[in-house]
Amino acid sequence: MIPLSHILLLSVILFTLGAAGFIIRRNVITVFMCIELMLNAVNLAFIAFARRLPGLDGQLFVFFVIVVAAAEAAVGLAIIVALYRNRNSLAIDDVDSMKL
């Protein structure tokens, strides 16, 4: 039996790494991947609590999170492509104003 606390610790370590990457990376695509990492850490916590309860609802929440992440990835990557067309750069420091 895997202790719940170990699963939650793994989850929070992954979340912290994602947040750290969000802060220190400067490439837009890498920042976006760090957001995905944070979403996955939360999914792990959902699954752990679903096992603890026990119930299937936590697993369905993970399902919905994955669906929303897919939609987010499609729109976000389209925004990144449009951004690159207009500014010719992927560095997040160059995107400091809303106007072109």
Partner: peptide, 30 residues
């Protein structure tokens, strides 16, 4: 950023430790 993240990690670790202990069992029958 990094000190705040470290604080978050430590805080969460303490919460988990207080709530479930180091070996709180996860298990219900599958």
């Amino acid at each position: 950023g990094p000190p705040l993240l470290l604080a978050f990690l430590v805080e969460f670790g303490v919460i988990v430790w207080k709530q479930y202990g180091l070996t709180g069992a996860a298990s219900a029958p599958a």
